[in-house]
Design a protein around this nucleic acid. Sequence first.
DNA 1: TAAAACGTAAGT
DNA 2: ACTTACGTTTTA
Length: 868
Amino acid sequence: MAMSLSADDEDYDSDTAEQQRLPNRPKPKMAASTATTPAATTSSSTATAVKLPSNRTSSGARRRRTRCRKCEACVRTECGECHFCKDMKKFGGPGRMKQSCIMRQCIAPVLPHTAVCVVCGEAGKEDTLDDEDEKFNAMLMECSICNEIVHPNCLKVKDAAGVVNDELPNCWECPKCNYAGKTGKQKRGPGFKYASNLPGSLLREQKAGRDGREEGDQTSTGAPSIKRKSEREETPRLKTEDLPSRLPPLLTPSGLPRPRSEVPNFLRKKRKLFDDDEEEEEASAKKKPKKPWRPEEPLIPKLSHMKTEEEEDNSDEEEERQEKREPPRRSFKKDYSTVRKEEEHEEERREERDSPFRSLKEFNILRKEEDQEEEKEEDDDDEEEEESNGKRGRDSSPALKNHSLSLESDASRCSSPRAGPSSEGSETQEKAPRARARRHRRKPPNRQLSAELSKQLNMEIRRTEHSLANENQQPLKSEPEDSENEEPKRGLRNGTTGNGGGGGGVERGAGGEGGGERPHLRAREMNGTSWELRHFYPPQITPLGLNRSSPTVRPLPARSPPKCVQMERHVIRPPPICPPPDRLPLADGRNHIAPREAWLAIFSHLSHRELCVCMRVCRTWNRWCCDKRLWTRIDLKRCKSITPLMLSGIIRRQPITLDLSWTNISKKQLSWLINRLPGLRVLLLSGCSWVAVSALCTSSCPLLRTLDLQWVEGLKDPQMRDLLSPPTDNRPGQMDTRSKLRNVTDLRLAGLDVTDSSLRLIIKNMPLLSRLDLSYCNHINDQSVNLLTAAGTTTRDSLTDVNLSVCNRVTDQSLSYFKRCGSICRIDLRFCKQVSRQACERFIAEMSVIVPFKLQEDKLLQKLHSTP
DNA sequence: TAAAACGTAAGT
DNA sequence: ACTTACGTTTTA
């Protein structure tokens, strides 16, 4: 099918097609040897690059990529615990799988050192040059379509623009292929692992999560997590009767049933859209001959909330049309961000493109918006208009304009691989029809709250992308035509609703900047998908896949079922390597006199929301505002959906405190996060599922000081054991025999059905434990307190604050045990039915000899002069 | 469809 | 010569 999709004639010839099948294409069954195509073999280390079939432009053998050795993953040591590690002989396995440790899967796989230009036979020479453009022309670029590796400079066809694949270093669609309109025949570009089909793949999990979520959505309940629903069923955690009236807020059913199927339809929907678009596309193609590149519209499609088909179709088509009209084209771009492209068929890509979620951003926006509003669906159109207008207006703002302009040049220069959501996305943006987004957004009726921050994160990320995109793309503006007027739809919509409009304003602003500014911005937006997202989502959704659409007219492909969910491998972009600039470049080319630190001092007085606004101002501010000192605490509490963008936003900010309470974060996400937050000290996971929390079992977070596991579904003794126990399979010299949570000083276990066996582990493995919250733990009794305060335990001396409120099995006896605690400052026994006030007073009287206590509240003992 | 298996490219 | 592990095929 892939073949049939492409515009190339060759493809239609089945025989030939067969012959030139790309390595990864299905086929010839030469056993494993197929894996390495003959061509590849021949090219081995010598340089002969890939040998291309003489008469076929497409289809060369691909050079196998190899790890970059520099990324975070590459520098890690093997975890020894994942599937692949366990298979390794060094870890006692059979060695049959021959895969690298999941934790070491390279983020930015590079071409092998032996790769050389097919034209001149030389290796990449970018290192010898300073100028970015020259560098680009001197580096080796591998075409994801024909697999040729060349120096852009060595190509004759220079008029045609190559389309750089941001997803992978040194990867593009060469001018030849691009010009020829070969779009994506190949199922996927060069890449690396991170295949969803690999155990441990983030993608997979994500997908699973999504799916699950969706299902949940449909059915309902909004609460913290939809996804969890099933889990919940499995592990009935608290009995309502046991819960006192003061349940954690979250427990209260906050969610309304989610409207129906958002996702499930998406396939159909997409397809449908696709059909419609097809025509559209062609038409537009005619209008604008030759646009090698078109903004990609990453989509996140499937994910979520999509609206009903009917609803979408119409408006989408409109948007689609417009979008098509102005394809900004990006030519030789030098952005090497990584990410793997997926192998998708063109149709699929298109479908994706057409799918409701044009871009990640949109998606995010949606999510946010969902939280805020669901109401104004009807007004969407109007809103769009307004918004767009607003954007335009805003754009005209001198200040912003200046910044962005100055930045643009700046940005364009900076091609270094940046991390984060930012750079990459930058180049193209999605034009995301916000209308579409909006629509989807509405569906979820329930979302109450997504934390403000999450919105902000999203916004900011988008913003970043926008700005970066703007910067990068500038020169390319290709068709002014549709510009502003038509554009309106694209912008992100924003929440006009929301809280006081503050958030809305912001978002809108963002949209304005990105979208309103210039027509071609849209393109940028499209591309703006953050790499992270791309990783998480199916490749088809990745910009590349989608956008490949070239204007060329192609026969309608037979549509194959969208395989949307199949994700392949994704790469995670490393954080920016270059330090943020110290000065703010101004439009006139000079720098602002205030140094970065001075700006940071100012930024430190801003709220996160305000910071997000600032991040939209310019690239420099964007980076400055991401300074981790400004984001020591990130609160995503109750944000039902943790999106990849959010994750990347978090990583970028490197918080010390991360509140993910009552979110439906998945295990993979959490694992991914904590493995990338070396400075994380406080992790709040109350209300999450055990499945997610179990990520702590395999991830390393030795510096965690505070761990909040209150009301975690399914967290009982066996799970506590998993959490606290030292690695079980330690092999000599391999692992630390100490608990991963050995440095925890503040542990919150409220609402869990844990018993003394868990306490024993805690006592044993958390020698520094100072604050322990066991409130609402019905299995906790006097014996538990006895254990905690027994002679020889570290907790006896380390505990300063113990919360046993609403522990109905605790009696006055516990107070006598607490007298043994040398450092105790606060004992909360409120609502403990079996604890009497008299006993508390007696405790105070007896302790006062040593340390003065007071009864701050009924049954709440507080040491005088101590912190509350 | 996911996981396992495997030939061999790429690196040391 | 040896190890790692990519990218595909095969198996479950």
